[in-house]
Design a protein around this nucleic acid. Structure first.
Lengths: 132, 132
DNA sequence: CGCTTGTTGAGAACCGTTGTCAAAGATCGG
DNA sequence: CCGATCTTTGACAACGGTTCTCAACAAGCG
């Protein structure tokens, strides 16, 4: 029940702290390996899982179903605007959406509402650099 | 390039027409088998893929990453409110959200915006039937 | 220190999905 | 109708991300 602070967990957290964009467990594992840290893939998965559970990291599903993780600035509920080309991420909140969601759901007699709201686009830099 | 109408494709479409909720490819395959239609799993996957491409069915990702398919009443862009217990689905649209999404994205200099907005909850019936 | 108990890691297992390829059948010109 | 053609089918293998297994290991505590 404890949650011990091991070398591996520390490494995962540190790596996440240095990265600004959403990364997959495998990418993270690769990164750690590359920098000399010896960490098992299963361990990376477990660490991310635990962090997600504790709301220490945000999880996003890529279009192909892969899970992507990111250490966000705020721990409160928020959404993301992600550049599908470079992965650049902007945290956004949408009080409008939250309100709309619960209103619509309630109107239909639904309870325990959860919502998924993510925005994908091409950021200014990527638009400029790609042959226009 | 043709898109021939085969017994199998017809069966998949018909099954979808009779089902109101989101179903996975495997569930659909199961259903077809159960009703005597002999259809291969791979074929079901291919049929659903084609239908999705043609916007004939909507695709949703379950929390575990599985793809769920549904024949929706309207082909235009819309969202869903899904009961996570029984799968009951309500089609909803959110002009509010659409507007908010494009405004926020534009403010950050993003282009070619796409958004994912799905609502999950427990419908009235399921709430009642589960030990409260 | 030692002990207890959670954690690790290599590989196997899982599971949804896609690829393979020979056999089957839809479509069409004759 | 009848073949020729060319897509589609289906059983099974292969794939890729994720989880499980279990013996070896190491935090943290007294």
């Amino acid at each position: 029940m404890a949650a011990r602070m091991t070398r591996q967990r520390t490494a995962v957290v540190e790596a996440l702290d240095e990265l600004a964009d959403f990364r997959s467990a495998q990418q993270l594992h690769e990164t750690l390996r590359a920098r000399g840290e010896s960490v098992g893939l299963a361990t990376v998965y477990r660490a991310l899982q635990a962090l997600a559970e504790a709301s220490e990291v945000d999880v996003l599903r890529a279009e192909d179903g892969e899970s992507l993780y990111r250490r966000c600035a705020r721990r409160e509920h928020h959404h993301h605007l992600v550049c599908r080309a470079c992965g650049r991420t902007v945290e956004i909140d949408g009080p409008t959406v939250e309100a709309w969601a619960s209103k619509v759901a309630a109107a239909q007699g639904f309870d325990d509402i959860e919502h998924t709201v993510e925005l994908w686009g091409t950021c200014a830099d990527c638009r400029a650099s790609s042959a226009r």
